[in-house]
Nucleic acid binder design. Structure first.
Lengths: 345, 345
DNA sequence: GTTGGCACTGTGCCGGTGACAGTGCCAATG
DNA sequence: CATTGGCACTGTCACCGGCACAGTGCCAAC
């Protein structure tokens, strides 16, 4: 990096100008000019000086002008450095905090908690909110129920101690009798109750060899099912709310709403995206725009953070790149904290 | 009704004109004029005659002109009579039928069936599709599991014979011990297994009186929970897909997309709407537009039908009033039939 | 009842014009 | 050297008149 050119990062006023541009643009949705800047923010200089600074900022690729004689709007890189220079998030105001507390503490079960959190976050940020179900830690099995649906299908219901019930249907190539299912059920119950899920799965696999031959296929299948349930259990589930907020963002974004909605329906991809995002030192991950234009999430940003055990489950917000980052980050963090607290209790 | 005026319903060519207008408008999204009409559809008359017919249709409120010298577009009432005059739905073409069959028959469990159906229907119609979970008929209880979460909360898991597992957390005012939960669990299991859900609930309520006093509050609560589960079980759940298709509908509808998305998130209201719709003699219910403008679903239509036992669960499609009704109706009916078949097996 | 003809009308599409906002540059200043 | 006021330059937008166009409504004729 040539030392001859001064970096904006080391130039307080230019930083301030960038910040002012971002704030004004986010709030007005219109390109912001030098004069409007000196009026609204009391930087102690004239508009000409600001123009010079804006020229430098444009060279650095932090802002751009839609056309020759218009104001400037932040680029993705501009948002990036704006977000990076935020050191402290101002906490939510007390009515909002109270809303979070009363809402989340009134929840009845885990589904209710998820539902309420995601709605709350959507309302707080006026964006699309997503909350991933917390990962089931290593929990012990409370009960396993086998239900014979027809001669080729048996339903496995897994009830762990934490109440996060899950189920899976297994298909058998050979028909299975009701009494075989019942016998197997008894054997399974005896073997796995009070054990950890994964441990139980392998245990069943080996114990299948000592079982009567007619139970073996079913036992093997149950072991497999348990393994699958343990692996892909509810951390692959998520709830979402506030998609209607996408419609509020006018202008260009209205044209990108289609791809975004599609992306939101692909929950698998969305979950992957959330878990791949790297949290920064503030404990919040912010993804701004997309690297290539083929990405359905062009012009949209994601603000996310973890919560729960090891912050492994994600809670996040998705909206246009032109969003109120400080507020969104504060809201996401607040909801994540309350979620962690509620789940811990 | 004055016999002097002839009703369009009894006037074959006017019906034909209405039909042609609807078809052209749905496909072109532009007001359709008299000349274009005689060119594309071979009605054996001149454009002037068609103009006369259109005049009558407009008087009857079936079509309207956006302004003096433009073509006509159907009104909601126009769509209504258009839909009503459809007597037979032409079945889907064979690739589409094959797609339905292979997709639905490859499903693993009930959730998978729902998920696949709704995606399929969305893709088939290019609209938003919704599928309600089939109502649990009067099924017998396979198993009930009680899990003590903390001293004030117990999770009730209900496993009916049809595999439609459901759960509910109950809150107790007085703390409850682990061994009380276990004892109660045994009592509940003995009392309710193999009984119908509702029957079991009332049974528990009465038998609570003979139980040890420390079990009574829990027993009562469990009875309540079972009752609630039976009433509001999974028929209150639904899946949805294709919201991105809302964005494709350009023009005015783009402005109505916000309220529609909001309405879609209010699943309770949506389910109520679906079940309140009256199926006609073809077995399909079509709601066109909203009666009053305050309804979020202005300019949107719903095509729905029932499936499963007594056609009690609903499957439907939601889109702009300007939609391809015959095709949508055919697709909805086809998916509903395959759903009924798959669930029956 | 149907048809050709014709006047009428609202819309969309130019091309031109003026107000406006905001820039870039320059010369002057501390 | 950073800052400043001044000024010419330049895209955008809104407005306007004219014009082609699509489509209607009406009428007289068949």
């Amino acid at each position: 990096m040539p030392t001859g050119e001064e970096e904006t990062v080391d130039h307080p006023r230019r930083q301030q100008v960038l910040q002012a541009i971002v704030e004004d643009y986010v709030h007005s949705r219109e390109p912001v000019g030098s004069q409007a800047l000196v009026e609204r923010h009391h930087l102690g200089v004239s508009s000409a000086t600001v123009r010079n600074d804006m020229g430098v900022l444009e060279e650095e690729g932090l802002i751009m002008a839609p056309h020759t004689s218009a104001g400037r709007i932040p680029t993705e890189k501009g948002y990036r450095t704006f977000v990076d220079q935020i050191t402290s998030l101002k906490p939510l105001n007390s009515p909002q905090r109270r809303a979070i507390r009363t809402l989340l503490e009134g929840a009845e079960d885990i589904d209710d908690v998820m539902e309420r959190s995601v709605r709350l976050l959507a309302q707080l940020t006026h964006q699309v909110a997503v909350v991933q179900y917390p990962v089931a830690a290593v929990v012990t099995i409370r009960h396993v129920e086998l239900v014979r649906m027809d001669e080729h299908h048996v339903l496995v219901v897994l009830i762990p101690a934490d109440g996060r019930v899950s189920q899976r249907t297994i298909a058998l190539s050979a028909p299975v009798d009701e009494h075989v299912v019942l016998d197997t059920r008894a054997r399974v119950l005896g073997a796995v109750t009070a054990r950890a899920v994964l441990e139980a799965a392998s245990l069943l696999g080996t114990s299948a060899l000592q079982a009567p031959v007619e139970q073996r296929p079913l036992l093997m299948a149950v072991a497999e099912a348990l393994q699958a349930l343990a692996a892909s259990s509810s951390e692959q589930r998520m709830v979402m709310a506030g998609t209607a907020n996408l419609a509020h963002s006018t202008g260009d974004f209205a044209r990108t709403i289609g791809p975004v909605l599609e992306a939101l329906e692909e929950q698998v991809a969305l979950l992957r995206l959330l878990s791949e995002m790297q949290q920064d030192d503030r404990g919040i991950a912010v993804r701004i725009g997309a690297d290539d234009a083929s990405d359905p999430l062009v012009e949209t940003s994601v603000v996310a953070t973890g919560y729960g055990p090891q912050e492994s489950a994600k809670v996040g917000v998705l909206g246009p790149t032109r969003m109120d980052y400080p507020h969104t980050m504060a809201a996401v963090r607040a909801v994540a904290r309350y979620l962690s607290r509620v789940l811990d209790a």
